[in-house]
């Protein structure tokens, strides 16, 4: 399918960041996310990831969506389902338009991709900053997760790497 033109979008007004030195890998952020969005405790449907799955991993960290300045997920969607939320600047997915093709998941420069495919619903899930009140940040017991805001916008460019 033909890619649409990469029109610049305004930077997000808020970004969730994680201080890896404080993260204890508890998964509370993932639970908060899936409970608030899906009404169920489901780590697979969380829109924030964690790299603490093995004992050998020492440098653990929660992995939130960067709400990229140049959102590859937005540009990759053939159905223009990804749009910028006016209030928060978050790059969000219009669930009505999403057909579950996963172009956005493949386009995400981060590893693991911060977008999750909901197998049962055949839709892709993405961090929407909870409309400006991110539940994962509220539920973080160590203060590792912070919600950083700037009305003029915060621009993070994600390189193709973990974290």
């Amino acid at each position: 399918m033909k890619r649409k033109e990469r029109k610049p979008v305004p930077p997000s007004k808020g970004v969730i960041v994680c201080d890896g030195s404080l993260c204890a890998g508890c998964s509370n952020c993932l639970f908060a996310c899936s409970l608030s969005h899906e009404g169920a405790a489901n780590l697979e449907l969380a829109r924030i990831q964690l790299n603490a799955h093995t004992q050998a991993k020492f440098d653990i960290c929660a992995l939130p969506c960067n709400q990229c300045g140049e959102p590859e997920c937005l540009y990759a969607c053939p159905f223009e389902a990804v749009y910028v939320d006016e209030k928060t600047g978050a790059r969000v997915i219009d669930q009505e338009k999403c057909v579950g093709c996963r172009s956005c998941v493949r386009a995400c420069p981060l590893d693991p991709p911060r977008l999750r495919f909901h197998k049962a619903a055949k839709k892709v899930l993405k961090c929407d900053l909870c409309g400006g009140d991110p539940q994962c940040v509220k539920m973080c017991p160590t203060g590792a997760l912070k919600y950083v805001t700037d009305p003029d916008g915060i621009k993070i460019d994600s390189e193709k790497k973990e974290g």
Binding site: N28, F31, A32, S34, L35, S36, E38, G39, A40, A41, N42, L43, E44, L45, K119, Q135, K138, M139
Partner: peptide
Amino acid sequence: GTGGLNVADPKAFMKVMR
């Protein structure tokens, strides 16, 4: 396992968590 667990009242549950 990739499944989830159903919670009857997620809001009330999250309040206890918090």
